[in-house]
């Protein structure tokens, strides 16, 4: 059992009322937490002995058209002893929102703004939730799956314009 799995089991033991699911894949531990209790879960991981005091990354995944479509992903790291845990919360709907982690880590400030900018997920309690990468007057959230890549066709063989993304088409998922 890896250190991350041990830590996750320990946190699950401590938060008995919270429904935490543990997933192991390629020696990485993912904890799926309910979105309402996410701050409690994150705080427990942060403050646990030999826990994960550093927020390395905060991002999101859009699984459109599946529902709940959004996953907010927190990557937590402890340096000594080395441990790395991924905490996920699922959010449904077109206007998702979740509590902000800026009170736990100032590092979350820009990371949450980036997720808001690119995915349109609102973080309640964020001090300054504005666009960060795109211009302020931009419409839409580009990393959503229903936002087009907006490619321009490019001339290919025999000067036939083609969209680069269509040259190798997407194949259906294989089991």
């Amino acid at each position: 059992m890896s250190r991350a799995a041990e830590l996750a089991a320990q946190v699950r033991g401590r938060l008995a009322e919270t429904d935490l699911q543990l997933v192991e894949f390629r020696d990485e531990t993912t904890v799926i937490a309910p979105a309402e209790q996410i701050i409690d879960v994150l705080r427990t991981f942060r403050d646990a002995p030999d826990g994960t005091p550093v927020l390395t990354d905060l991002t999101a995944v859009d699984r459109f058209p599946a529902e709940p479509r959004f996953e907010v992903v927190y990557l937590l790291t402890g340096y000594a002893p080395p441990v790395r845990v991924r905490v996920k919360a699922r959010l449904a709907g077109d206007t998702p929102s979740i509590a902000s982690a800026t009170a736990l880590w100032p590092a979350a400030n820009w990371l949450e703004r980036e997720v808001y900018d690119l995915f349109g997920i609102r973080f309640e309690g964020h001090p300054n939730l504005t666009r960060i990468l795109l211009p302020d007057d931009w419409g839409g959230h580009p990393l959503r799956k229903d936002f087009p890549l907006t490619e321009e066709p490019v001339q290919f063989i025999n000067h036939v314009p083609r969209i680069p993304g269509a040259i190798i088409p997407k194949t259906p998922p294989r089991p």
Binding site: D57, T59, V61, D62, R63, V73, I168, K170, T171, P172, P173, R174, P175
Partner: peptide, 9 residues
């Protein structure tokens, strides 16, 4: 499981 990633962060 398809030939393209769902997300690369």
């Amino acid at each position: 499981g398809s030939n393209r990633p769902v997300r690369v962060r």
